[in-house]
Amino acid sequence: MRAPNLNLPTFELSPIFVKEMAGRMRSARAYTILTVYLGIAGGLSVLLYMVSLWGSTRTVVTSGAVGSVIFYFLVGMQVLLVGFVAPSLTAGAISVERENKTFDALRATPLTAAQIVRAKLISGLGFTLLLLFATLPLFSLAFLLGGVEPRELIIALCAVFASACLYTSLGLYISARSKTTLGATLGTYALVTGIVIGIPLAALVGASTVRLTLSGSGPATLLADLFDVASTLAISLSPVGAIVASQNVFNTTGELWTITAKLAGGGFALTLPAPFLILTGVYLLASAALYRLTVRHVARIAQE
């Protein structure tokens, strides 16, 4: 009996995406990264659990605190993972094609620059998301112990996902511009380090200096308050800063989506989106801009 012809629309993944993912999953590196990361995260979570319970009576309250500690430890691990792994997945995506002399053959196909760049970006992002999803079972330990609200998970997931998007697109852009993969990788890591550590550090130092310099009342206080707001916005551009700041706001005011800054000693208030929303918005916009720039650069190679 012949199967009926349903004339269903066919969907096919980009050949470059399939090639990149297949190549990645065939290498021992993918499984090594996954195993090492899950081993460290899982092992340290259990260790944290054991240490937290050491000498304490097991009550609902302590159990919740342990759950919260494990949750934030895992979020920190996710941020680290994204910062270390995501850039390496795309930093060589285009420069390796050039170094291996495979780029001309690829460009000679009817695939457009946008199709090539998109496939490489989705492939890098896809593998990062795979690593992130692989750690989700570990989060169940934190939820089992309590002390963590789903809203906190939303904050963490938004920040981590947006970071993954930015770092992969940043790696891809630098890869398109760089002549060597080594240069692209070093350049991407330098920028990611600047984003993760440099921005919040500069914001904190700046805020403290201005506070000390402009201590007083009247316009000076307003200026210092405005600088505080600017510092909060700057801190929001770092995933760690955004998660911590959003969590603080949520714990103190119960607000998830917004923060309210009081200016000039409480004379008037300024309402802003929560730091994790600022981070998500800015990172996704920056990712889109980097994607466009990468496409334009790859297309421009043909004009040379």
Partner: peptide, 11 residues
């Protein structure tokens, strides 16, 4: 099109 020097994908 076949370039003079061209590479392949080792994987």
């Amino acid at each position: 099109y076949l370039p003079r020097d061209f590479g392949v994908y080792p994987e």
